[in-house]
Amino acid sequence: MSAPEPESEKHSEAASDIAEQFLASVYLARTSLARNPLRSTLATLGIVIGVFAIATLGILGSVVQLTATDALGGLGDQVIVSPNADAGVDRLTDRDVALISRAVGDATVIPIVTGGALVQRGESQTFAALYAVERPGNLFSARTGELPERHRRGAIVGSDVASSLGVDVGRTVTIEGREYRVIAVLAESDGVNLLQPDGAVLIPRSAFADESFTQVIVRADSGGEAAAAADSVRDALNTRGERVTVLELSQIVDRIDQFFGLLNAFLVAIGAVSLVVAGVSILNVMLMSVSERRGEIGVLRAVGVQRIDVLRTILVEAGLLGVVGGVGGAAISGLVALGLYVVVPEVTLPVVANVRTAGYLVFAVAFGITVSLASGLYPAWRAANQRPVEALRVK
């Protein structure tokens, strides 16, 4: 009496049989599709276009969203406190700034005096915004020169103003009849900045006729801390009336992000419609293929081929169309994404090459294969359920 086969060997043989059956189905499916290459190519092209549409529209929406997020920079962790003109308050005092500082704790408080004037250098002149920021290093960085710890003397010139007047560190500029030596030139702003430093000049607070503040920027370590700081400022300054308006930039950033998210979903939905249309094309191809091979399928069924084998073969045909079309469409979409990086200067490599982009490519391919398989279900069921006698009957 021989010993029974171990369970592991049984499982191994079963897996081997399944693999052989699948490979046989792939061979038969490939042979069937090759019989009418033009029809198969057109069906595959429909999947290529649909997958390309989904992936490319999704990637484009993602690129726009991420580029906008990068441009907004760190605005999400800032709170803007301004005097409420409707309540008759047009300036913020040193006492207001002290109350804000106590209310926000460890967050950075940056009071600002603003104005505007003509800035001259010899025969050249340009209009510039004027700012007084005691600690300019909290908001800006220098291209040339060095930003002082506390701004008490001299002028700090924005990049556009420096270019217009042809000045650099050590030169002088004239503002409203007063001469200032340039101690630093600001680096170009590479994102959204509320103060627009490129076209501005920073001068000491004492140079302003009215030294009271026009706004206060509160910078926290995160959006959540910024929201908490905003609530604390309201509690500290608005207990007896709305003396100040408090703008939480994180809310604006979130709404912009939500808008782009909805836009992205809409674009992907448009691409999905084209892929569903391509699925109808595959359905037509499979139905015609089943009709033309009716006699062949009847012979297979008559010699003992099971329904599941016929069903699997037809589904593999549809799946092959989906795989080839999906991979082709995703490859073209990936090239388009790289083209964006090469052609559009504002689009950076991290924006294009990221997990979200890869996710759209994978989703588009998976959706294309799913649509193809779904389109092949009815033809496969119809072929598998044909009675051999009817299939062999000559019309």
Rank of each mutant, 00 (worst) to 15 (best):
residue 8 S to M: 01
residue 9 E to K: 02
residue 12 S to V: 01
residue 12 S to G: 04
residue 14 A to G: 00
residue 18 I to A: 10
residue 19 A to M: 10
residue 20 E to A: 11
residue 20 E to H: 04
residue 22 F to L: 13
residue 24 A to C: 07
residue 24 A to G: 12
residue 26 V to Q: 04
residue 30 R to Q: 03
residue 30 R to P: 00
residue 31 T to N: 12
residue 32 S to A: 15
residue 37 P to C: 10
residue 38 L to H: 07
residue 38 L to V: 15
residue 41 T to G: 15
residue 42 L to P: 07
residue 42 L to A: 07
residue 43 A to C: 06
residue 50 G to M: 09
residue 55 A to V: 05
residue 55 A to I: 04
residue 55 A to L: 03
residue 63 V to R: 06
residue 64 V to K: 00
residue 64 V to R: 01
residue 68 A to D: 03
residue 74 G to Y: 09
residue 75 L to P: 10
residue 78 Q to D: 13
residue 80 I to T: 14
residue 80 I to H: 08
residue 83 P to E: 15
residue 84 N to H: 12
residue 85 A to S: 15
residue 86 D to M: 14
residue 89 V to K: 12
residue 90 D to E: 13
residue 93 T to G: 14
residue 95 R to Y: 12
residue 96 D to H: 11
residue 96 D to G: 11
residue 96 D to I: 13
residue 97 V to M: 08
residue 97 V to R: 12
residue 99 L to D: 13
residue 99 L to K: 12
residue 105 G to S: 02
residue 107 A to C: 10
residue 108 T to M: 15
residue 109 V to Y: 06
residue 110 I to G: 08
residue 112 I to S: 07
residue 117 A to H: 01
residue 121 R to D: 05
residue 129 A to N: 09
residue 130 L to I: 02
residue 131 Y to P: 06
residue 132 A to M: 05
residue 132 A to Y: 02
residue 137 G to S: 15
residue 140 F to L: 14
residue 143 R to G: 09
residue 146 E to A: 11
residue 151 H to A: 08
residue 153 R to N: 12
residue 160 D to W: 03
residue 160 D to P: 00
residue 162 A to S: 12
residue 169 V to I: 06
residue 173 V to H: 03
residue 173 V to F: 05
residue 174 T to K: 09
residue 178 R to A: 14
residue 180 Y to H: 10
residue 182 V to I: 15
residue 186 L to A: 11
residue 190 D to H: 11
residue 192 V to N: 09
residue 198 D to H: 09
residue 199 G to L: 09
residue 200 A to S: 15
residue 206 S to D: 12
residue 206 S to M: 07
residue 208 F to W: 10
residue 212 S to M: 14
residue 215 Q to D: 12
residue 217 I to Y: 13
residue 220 A to Q: 13
residue 221 D to L: 07
residue 223 G to I: 10
residue 224 G to P: 02
residue 232 S to Q: 05
residue 234 R to W: 00
residue 238 N to P: 04
residue 241 G to H: 06
residue 243 R to S: 11
residue 246 V to A: 05
residue 247 L to Q: 14
residue 252 I to Q: 14
residue 258 Q to W: 04
residue 261 G to H: 11
residue 262 L to Y: 14
residue 263 L to H: 04
residue 263 L to S: 11
residue 269 A to L: 15
residue 270 I to V: 15
residue 270 I to G: 13
residue 272 A to R: 06
residue 282 I to P: 00
residue 287 L to P: 00
residue 287 L to G: 01
residue 294 R to M: 04
residue 295 G to I: 06
residue 296 E to K: 05
residue 296 E to Q: 12
residue 297 I to H: 01
residue 302 A to N: 07
residue 303 V to I: 15
residue 305 V to K: 05
residue 306 Q to G: 04
residue 307 R to Y: 00
residue 308 I to K: 10
residue 314 I to R: 00
residue 315 L to I: 03
residue 317 E to Y: 03
residue 319 G to K: 09
residue 322 G to N: 07
residue 323 V to H: 10
residue 325 G to S: 07
residue 327 V to R: 04
residue 337 A to Q: 05
residue 341 Y to R: 11
residue 343 V to N: 03
residue 351 V to F: 02
residue 352 V to P: 00
residue 352 V to M: 02
residue 356 R to I: 13
residue 358 A to Y: 11
residue 363 F to R: 06
residue 363 F to H: 04
residue 365 V to S: 02
residue 365 V to G: 03
residue 366 A to T: 12
residue 374 A to K: 00
residue 376 G to Q: 00
residue 378 Y to W: 13
residue 382 R to Y: 06
residue 382 R to H: 09
residue 382 R to V: 04
residue 389 V to H: 04
residue 390 E to S: 02
residue 394 V to K: 07
